[in-house]
C-alpha cells in the first residue's frame, strides 16, 4: 500500500518547524507504524537527507518511549494501543496521514517528533514513591493486601509514562499520569503513611510544570495505551482535598523547567 504523510519537521529545540510531505511506497499491512517510518527514513538517509527523528525503544508497547499524534489522535486510531503496536493494516491504501509531536507547554519539542518529557520524572520525584530504603523491608507476606486493592493498584500502575494523556487532553493536563501514580500507591497499605504528602506535592509539581487543569473531557483515558481510568483522577482530587484540609504545610514546589 501507499500513503501520503505530512510530517512535522523541526531541526531543533525552540527552532521553527513545518509540515513536510512524504510519499511512502509499497508499505506492508503487517508493518507497525514505526516500521513504516523506518522505511521512509531509510529512503531519506539513502538520499543523504536527515531522517525523521522519533523516540522509540522497546517496540512492544511497554517502555513508553514512542508517542506520535496521528491524524489528530494520540497514538493513532487503535484504542489502548501505543504507536509502536499500531499496525498499518488499520490504514487504507492511499490514506493521508498527518504526523505531529505531542504538543504541550510541559513537553517542549526537541526535534521533529521527539519531545522532552522529563517533567514527568520531576512529578514522580516530588512524591511518586514509597520511602522504603533498601534493607529495611518487612517480610513480604507480613502485610496482606486484599486482592481487589492489589488488582486496582496494578491497573493504575500499568501507566507507561508515554504522555499521550497530556497530548490528547484539550487542556494539556497531566492529571491522568499523576493520578495513576497517586492511585497505585494510595491503594496499597504500604503507601498510606505518605499518602497525603504525596498528593499535595505531586499535584503542586504537576502544576509548576505548566500542565493544565482537568475539565473531565475524558480524552486522556481514550488515548491511554494502558486503559488507565479517569476514576483515578477523582481519587487524586479526593486525596488532595483531604490532604489540603488536614495539613498546614504548604506543598513546596521544586523548580520547574
Amino acid at each position: 500500500m501507499n500513503l501520503i504523510l505530512h510530517v512535522w519537521r523541526q531541526p531543533g529545540p525552540d527552532r521553527g518547524g513545518e509540515f513536510v510531505r512524504y510519499d511512502a511506497h509499497d508499505i506492508s499491512p503487517e508493518m507497525s507504524f514505526l516500521e513504516m517510518l523506518d522505511v521512509v527514513n531509510e529512503d531519506l538517509v539513502g538520499r543523504g537527507e536527515r531522517p525523521i527523528a522519533f523516540d522509540h525503544d522497546c517496540r512492544e508497547g511497554i517502555c513508553g518511549s514512542c508517542g506520535i499524534m496521528i491524524n489528530g489522535i494520540a497514538h493513532g486510531p487503535m484504542q489502548a494501543t501505543a504507536t509502536c503496536q499500531l499496525h498499518m493494516r488499520h490504514f487504507a491504501d492511499g490514506a493521508v496521514v498527518w504526523i505531529e509531536p505531542w504538543r504541550a507547554r510541559g513537553f517542549p519539542v526537541i526535534t521533529d517528533l521527539v519531545v522532552n518529557r522529563s517533567a514527568f520524572d520531576r512529578i514522580i520525584a516530588a512524591g511518586g514513591f514509597i520511602s522504603a530504603n533498601t534493607g529495611n523491608a518487612p517480610e513480604a507476606n507480613s502485610v496482606p493486601v486484599p486482592k481487589q486493592n492489589a488488582d486496582d493498584a496494578m491497573d493504575a500502575a500499568a501507566c507507561i509514562g508515554c504522555g499521550a494523556c497530556v497530548a490528547a487532553c484539550p487542556n494539556g493536563s497531566a492529571s491522568l499520569f499523576t493520578a495513576a501514580k497517586i492511585s497505585h500507591l494510595g491503594l496499597l497499605p504500604q503507601g498510606q503513611p505518605e499518602r497525603q504528602r504525596r498528593a499535595l506535592r505531586m499535584v503542586a509539581q504537576m502544576e509548576a510544570e505548566g500542565f493544565g487543569p482537568c475539565s473531565w473531557f475524558g480524552e486522556c483515558q481514550e488515548a491511554c495505551p494502558k486503559d488507565i481510568s479517569i476514576d483515578t483522577i477523582a481519587r487524586m482530587n479526593h486525596d488532595f482535598v483531604r490532604a489540603a484540609a488536614a495539613t498546614r504545610i504548604e506543598a513546596p514546589v521544586r523548580g520547574s523547567a
Binding site: 523491608a137 493498584a153 497505585h184 504500604q190
Partner: peptide, 14 residues
C-alpha cells in the same frame, strides 16, 4: 521480594 513489596510493587495475590 520483601524490598519490592515494601516499595509498592503490586505483585499478584491470592
Amino acid at each position: 521480594i520483601d524490598q519490592c513489596t515494601a516499595q509498592g510493587v503490586p505483585f499478584a495475590r491470592e
